[in-house]
Simulated assay, not measured.
Amino acid sequence: MLALFKNLKGDKAIWGIVALLALFSFLPVYSASTNLVYVKDTGTTIGHLVKHGVLLFLGFMIIYAVHRIPTHYFKGLSLIAMPIVLILLGYTLTVETNIGGVSANRWIKIPFVGIPFQTSTLASVVLMIWIARYLSKIRDAKITFKESILPLWLPVGLVVGLILPANFSTAAIVGILVLVLCFLGGYPLKYLFAITGTGLVLAGMFLFVLFKTPEVLPDRAGTWKSRIETFIHPENASADASRQVNYAKMAVAEGGLFGKGAGKSVMKNILSQSTSDFIFAIIIEEYGLVGGLGLLFFYLLLLFRIVVVANSTKTVFAKLLVIGVGLPIVFQAFINMAVVVQLFPTTGQPLPLISMGGTAIWMTCLAIGIVLSASDKKQEEPDGLNIDENNPLEVLSGQL
């Protein structure tokens, strides 16, 4: 074990923040899992805690393995992974999946082990690596929109388009983060403005269809419409539509300044997503405003360290890679918190490293491992260095 700790590379502050968030997650997960045991009659609190611990342990093994990979290797890996994630996303749309008796077409089951896998989480990480590779390649070149359609916008359109039918919020978040990364990567502003304007027009048309004829849209369109209506006009929302939102607000109100104490939440027993989407409400109820702001501080600290790492890297690709895979972690955390305090419509986004979940934890750990890889200067290959011709992946990465 000591040898394992000695081999930890990269930014020690990020290692510490991630470890603290993971350790803290056991408290709210154990507390909120009583909802699964006594209300939904699934397993035991210890069983859910052990499952969460196993997922986190495997997640940290992913971080350890990935952070040992030289950063420039991810260029070649993105070329291999992109076709795979497109196939997985397409396959996900064709499979009828039920988890706990509820339709969950955003997931597929991993063969032999039966663990649900949300393919969009992997696709979003791979897409960001793909974009970082492309933007670093054209950094000093004059590029036209036509030239970037096939290598950049076609993969973006395919990934976002395949995620959209089953997971509107994730598709929207990925689309926004793609634009942010392209802006930071120096993609021509005139094209970004045009794409953003077109996106806003399409979003307006989509909302018009959603509210006028939702039956022509995917099955989840009714859920999207209900969530938007509840957010805009909560006073007119039906009891079923507003129930979880109201419970979350009650949990926040009950928390006060210092909270009721660990394990003493009442709302966890009636808040259906208390272990995942609304776990932040349980945290505030039990640890108060102080606990909620403390958690927010650690995510802001993680964002700060991600920016520091990006700024200290030697290559354009590494800078864009760190921002591309690191920013979504913190962005997702902010959205989860904003939903709980009613600053954002319900999205179904878990709280990274805190929420009880499945492979979403692993994909977060994958992204963290990539950031840590870039933060280790010894593993970063500066532009122009010699490439090992006996390593096909290194040759492919160096050429791209």
Rank of each mutant, 00 (worst) to 15 (best):
S31W: 06
S31H: 12
S31A: 14
A32P: 03
A32R: 02
S33E: 08
T34F: 12
N35A: 08
L36S: 01
L36N: 02
L36Q: 08
L36T: 05
V37E: 08
V37D: 08
V37Y: 00
Y38Q: 09
V39F: 15
V39N: 14
V39Y: 13
K40C: 06
K40Y: 11
K40G: 01
K40D: 02
D41S: 15
D41C: 11
T42E: 13
G43H: 03
T44K: 06
T44P: 02
T45R: 10
T45D: 01
I46S: 04
I46N: 00
I46C: 01
G47I: 02
G47C: 08
H48Y: 10
H48V: 02
L49F: 07
L49H: 04
L49G: 07
L49A: 11
L49Q: 00
V50I: 13
K51S: 10
H52I: 00
H52L: 02
G53W: 04
V54Y: 08
L55Y: 13
L56G: 04
L56P: 00
L56V: 13
L56Q: 10
F57P: 02
F57N: 03
F57R: 00
F57C: 07
L58D: 11
F60D: 07
F60C: 06
F60M: 08
F60P: 01
M61P: 05
I63C: 05
I63F: 06
I63T: 01
Y64D: 02
V66Q: 05
V66C: 02
V66A: 03
R68K: 14
R68Q: 14
I69T: 09
P70F: 03
P70Q: 07
P70W: 05
H72C: 05
H72Q: 14
H72K: 14
H72I: 07
Y73G: 09
Y73C: 12
G76R: 05
G76M: 03
G76E: 07
G76L: 04
L77C: 10
L77T: 09
S78A: 15
S78V: 08
L79W: 08
L79C: 05
L79A: 06
L79I: 07
I80K: 03
I80R: 05
A81P: 04
P83M: 09
P83Y: 11
V85M: 08
V85R: 07
I87W: 14
I87V: 15
I87N: 09
I87S: 15
I87G: 14
L88D: 09
L88Q: 14
G90V: 09
Y91D: 12
Y91A: 13
Y91H: 15
T92I: 09
T92N: 09
L93G: 14
L93R: 13
L93F: 07
V95A: 12
E96Q: 12
E96P: 01
E96H: 12
T97F: 10
T97G: 10
T97I: 12
N98R: 10
N98D: 00
N98G: 05
N98I: 06
N98A: 06
N98S: 12
I99D: 13
G100K: 15
G100T: 15
G100D: 14
G101I: 00
V102K: 15
V102G: 10
V102P: 03
V102I: 13
S103W: 12
S103H: 12
A104W: 02
N105C: 10
R106P: 02
R106W: 05
R106I: 05
R106N: 09
R106H: 07
R106Y: 04
W107H: 15
W107M: 13
I108W: 00
I108S: 03
